[in-house]
């Protein structure tokens, strides 16, 4: 085997790779918070909502968790086209990511809420806090702190899943790789470079989310113990 590595495409397509990396990061960044909000709302609805809310949240969560992301993306992208709603591939990608990660986050947050001892909710209610105040100030912070590592994993998985968005021609990292590969026929080298970039970006995201955890959980920062 005398394969000759040729990374010369890096010079010509370096800018495209950079733009693709930024788009991947940006797609992830704008999907995390809405995804968390959708997921948490679903978890709350599924646990404490009236029956129709519980049912609706369950249907959403199960429908999304049991179909492939790529199908969801197509369905959204082409479905909207049928309704003659024209939408940029980037926005379609973000909407699909939010809907997708929301369903997984819902299950993680549900586990978080369910792990809180009943006495906590009883104590909040006995201090005359309303249901919403109890949720916001007592249950939510504890739930998030307990499942934070799982949430971080989920958001990293979501970042990796952005690679599917090349299917609707969003020029994120993987999409850029397809193109370079098509022009240069240097598939092995291109995907090697892409893998290294993903590794770097994921490491960065993990560091940011871990750092964020230190900021939002002062108790954990000070004591270093799990809740």
């Amino acid at each position: 085997m005398n394969y000759e590595f040729d990374f010369s495409f890096l010079g010509e397509y370096g800018q495209d790779l950079w733009d693709g990396t930024l788009l991947t990061l940006w797609m992830t960044a704008v999907s995390i918070i809405p995804g968390f909000v959708v997921g948490t709302a679903c978890a709350v609805g599924r646990l404490y909502g009236p029956p129709w809310v519980r049912k609706a949240a369950t249907v959403y969560v199960e429908a999304i968790r049991n179909t492939p992301l790529v199908i969801q993306v197509f369905w959204l992208f082409f479905g909207l086209a049928v309704l003659s709603v024209r939408i940029d591939a980037f926005y379609a990608a973000v909407i699909a990511l939010v809907i997708n990660v929301g369903a997984y986050t819902a299950e993680i947050m549900r586990a978080g809420f369910e792990s809180i001892p009943k006495g906590q909710i009883e104590a909040a209610s006995c201090l005359a806090l309303s249901r919403w105040q109890s949720l916001l100030y007592v249950q939510l912070p504890q739930a998030v702190e307990r499942v934070y590592p799982a949430l971080v994993s989920q958001f990293i998985l979501m970042m990796l899943a952005t690679s599917i968005m090349s299917q609707i021609s969003a020029p994120e990292l993987t999409g850029v790789a397809y193109q370079i590969q098509a022009f240069t026929f240097r598939g092995f080298e291109v995907y090697l470079v892409i893998a290294v970039i993903y590794l770097a970006v994921v490491t960065l995201l993990r560091a940011i989310l871990t750092g964020l955890g230190k900021v939002i959980f002062p108790r954990r920062r000070r004591l270093g113990t799990p809740l």
Binding site: P117, G119, Q120, C126, A128, S130, Q142, E145, L227
Partner: peptide
């Protein structure tokens, strides 16, 4: 909620909020 403001309760298991 008005009743709960008039009547305080302390439990066997304290039930302090651990994150605060």
């Amino acid at each position: 909620r008005a009743l709960r403001q008039d009547v305080g309760i302390v439990f066997q298991s304290y039930n302090l909020f651990p994150h605060l």
